[in-house]
Amino acid sequence: MKRRWINFVSRFFTIATGLACLAVTVMVALILGNVVRHGFGHLSWKFLSTAPSAGMTEGGIFPAIFGTAFLVILMTLAVVPLGVCTAIYLQEYAPARSRWVPLVRMAIQNLAGVPAIVFGLFGLGFFIQFLGKGIDRFFFGGDLVFGQPAILWAALTLALLTLPTVVVATEEALRVVPRAHREVAYSLGATRWRMVRHVLLPQAVSGILTGTILAVSRGAGEVAPILFTGAAYYLPYLPKRLNQQFMELGYHVYVMATQSPDVDATMPILYATVFVLLALTFTLNFAAILIRSKIRRRMKR
């Protein structure tokens, strides 16, 4: 009797947890489905390659796509070298019992937990007010050049936000390389940096790539840090200089959803923009997941 009750309860909970999985999957599908249904119809080559017109009720979103791409490229240029170097330090250069290692790790973990809006405040308070105004005073005689919202500062703010992602992924990649490889390199007379550069990094490339892709996906989607560090609603030009503002997909979604004057006219554009943004982040995330599972499968062999 008791056995049957146990079996019943077990089966119940097994099914219940399975339903939880199903519920989450269904919610993801609903969101995607809703966006695709309302947004796909409005997509066109013209939409992706022209600028908004007629007060955002017509036209396309090319400046936002360009701005997002430019922003993310700058961010990657900053975060990948920094993150990879930090991971290399933690794995290869730090002495075994160094007190710095737990400190750096703790710093990275805490950076990962800082709210996005706090990064925005930091971008404003440090990059713009301190660095930017400082640069203006020393190089431009007080003119307002870099001491204002700019794509450079927004990119650096995002780089700080995504730093933990790159560090963790790189560390994971370095850890996986067998110890023997390092020892063989040393025994052949290589210096530490040579060993890292010619033995470790080539093998860690896919892991670093995963981390970079995840960072890019995060950077393309976060809006709070760029609210005051450079995103703009309507610019008649594309940002070509580091001290210019930029349009951005996520910010565009936010402004259109909350401030467009004719909500019904802009709804198709809004949905289509959401579609483009989601397509971007999903493709990136999916690519990262694929690379990661390929690495794991290679490891098991």
Partner: peptide, 14 residues
């Protein structure tokens, strides 16, 4: 489920 992490919060807000 991990793909849910790829949805930016601005889209969830929308």
């Amino acid at each position: 489920i991990e793909l849910l992490a790829g949805i930016p919060s601005v889209v969830l807000g929308f």
